[in-house]
Amino acid sequence: MSNQAINIEQLMERLGDSGVTILLKVDHERTAERRKPWTIVMSGPSMGEGEFLHTDCHTLDNCLEYGLGELRAGPGDWKWLDGLNSVDVERLLLLMGIQAIIDIEQLMERLGDSGVTICLKIDHERTAERCNPWAISMSGPGVGNNEGIYAEFRTLADCLEYGLGELRARPGDWKWLDELF
């Protein structure tokens, strides 16, 4: 087991640069039912023609362990993943625009507990084009009014700032978000 920490934002951007689209999701319904709330989906040309992976897990660590393991076993040069180990993941990100350090796993799980399904995605094609590769999507009863929140931005920080700002403007107790930012 490696003691090297993984920065989720950097990992996802590196995968995007390597031709992999990656989506991380926490599902509010599965959270409430105590089923595997985390989902990881990976696809793209670097994984081989027509190849993709999808799994649901109890934790972000389990999702990353599975996803990175599958990449290592597949075609392509994934040696740069050898030093990474999801069991020792440090999910702290310094988000320049927000000026705060947040734990992505804690944020996503707390949103799931609040009735919000959240997806964070980086798209390999948009990464190559340098055109808003990050996307955030939020839905579920916590979002209210059957209106979801969706946006695409150049950075994860911008996605989170927009998405959480939209969430704060909607009915509900979102004061706990202030603790994170």
Rank of each mutant, 00 (worst) to 15 (best):
M12A: 14
M12H: 01
M12G: 06
M12D: 03
M12Y: 02
E13W: 00
R14E: 12
L15Y: 00
L15W: 02
L15M: 07
L15F: 02
G16W: 05
G16Q: 03
D17C: 07
D17W: 05
D17Q: 14
D17K: 14
S18W: 01
G19M: 06
V20S: 01
V20R: 08
T21N: 07
T21K: 05
T21E: 12
I22H: 00
I22M: 14
I22A: 09
I22S: 10
I22Y: 00
I22L: 13
I22P: 00
L23G: 06
L23H: 09
L23V: 15
L24V: 11
L24K: 04
L24F: 11
K25R: 15
K25H: 10
K25S: 07
V26T: 08
V26R: 09
D27M: 05
D27T: 07
D27G: 07
D27P: 02
H28F: 04
H28L: 00
E29I: 09
E29A: 11
E29M: 11
E29C: 02
E29L: 12
R30D: 07
T31Q: 13
A32Q: 12
A32C: 00
E33I: 01
E33H: 10
R34F: 04
R34C: 03
R35W: 01
K36E: 15
K36Q: 14
K36N: 11
P37N: 08
P37F: 05
P37Q: 12
W38Y: 09
W38N: 08
W38Q: 02
W38R: 04
W38M: 10
T39I: 10
T39V: 13
T39S: 15
T39E: 15
I40F: 07
I40Y: 04
I40W: 03
I40N: 06
I40E: 01
I40K: 05
V41D: 06
M42E: 08
S43E: 14
S43R: 15
S43Q: 13
S43N: 14
S43W: 10
S43L: 08
G44A: 09
G44H: 09
G44T: 08
P45C: 12
P45K: 15
P45Y: 11
P45N: 13
P45I: 07
